[in-house]
Nucleic acid binder design. Sequence first.
DNA 1: CATCCACAGGAAGGACGGGGGT
DNA 2: ACCCCCGTCCTTCCTGTGGATG
Length: 401
Amino acid sequence: MIAESIFKSEFDKNSVFLDRNLIMPSYIPDELPFREKQIEEVSRVIAPALKGQRPENLFIYGKVGTGKTSVSKHVMKKFNEFASNNKINAECYYVNCRTHNTVYKVLNKIAKDIYAEESFIGFPSTFIYEKILEYSKQQKHIIFILDEIDKVRDLDELMYNLTRANDELDKGSISVIGISNNVLFKDRLDARTKSSLCEKELVFPPYNAEELIEILKKRAKLAFKEGAISTSAISLAAAYAAKESGDARTAVLLLLKAGEIADRLSLNIVEDEQVKAAKSLVEEEIVLSLISTLPSQQKLVLYAIAKLSLDKKPIKSLIGLEQGVLFSGEIYEEYTRLAKKFKESIVSARWYREYISELEVYGLIITTNSGKGIKGQTRLIKLASDPTKIRDVLEKELFGN
DNA sequence: CATCCACAGGAAGGACGGGGGT
DNA sequence: ACCCCCGTCCTTCCTGTGGATG
């Protein structure tokens, strides 16, 4: 009965969305504004495969939401279309290394794609490797896109395997396009792997605010009903994302969430207010998921901070100090008290300081050095977001079950 | 000015678990 | 199967620092 009425009202409700799927961050639009040059470069690199030559390996670097994956997938699609339309023996495959994070998993995924869903799980990796080799021996020129390539644990071995294949092939070839948002990871690689993977390199710059506005406008036109989102709301979402990192992904996510909020409130048009609400919602989600990954000792420290922030009478916080600003020492005392109470082990004060530094890096707390007015040299610590919310979440996390 | 305070944060080293080599 | 090495997490010990205090 309840379920039915929810389904019915969900179904009847008019939404600001025309097609919600088109504004999911995972959706790849046909048009990729401001990435023409990158599309051209990637295409240029892999084009030799269409003439029966081995393309050079390519390394693509760029921060999150700069269009690396979208551009690669876009080019891959066009490449495969062109190859099959013209009956050319060239193919391009995509592997996300976040889930396929070992040599074995990557080889397996590749083999599975090549041999259309035939699974090789359980077979030794040399066998899988031979299978892949066998396939490309039919004069095939194959390109593998390895997304989030820095996640592969033994990348040296994988690259060695894939490049070695070319020595054993006389007609076909194998090339790799590696994608990463981490520049530093290159330094951890073997020199040979590095020079092989980075035969060509391409950097994707972040989008600026104007570009983000254009991108969002295009997307909004696809996903929202006409006039269902205001121009200023779009600009605001773009401005937020530009300020953070020039990340198109979060910009799009903001619009999606803002639309959902508008739907829930049965509004016909998405305004600035919903974008603002979406932003704090997204931020909150990030904070909450961050907290849940913390080790329990660190959760206790954070809990101590939240509890003290809410205390009516901050013990040491004296004249002129903002409410909720705490001393490092009093937090440590509270933490040890709590740890004893819940029969948890207690980390040393030294390690506690590491925890504090880490919490600051995560942006969960804000710290300043004590200046004049306070004796000794210590850190003043303040929670970065709402103490009540943090405390409640931590209570659930720590003692919930 | 010396001294104390209340810490910050570096260095060294111990326990432990996993992954890789033989 | 075994050992070794390495990274992680943590402790102990230590020196440094900026302001208050006598």
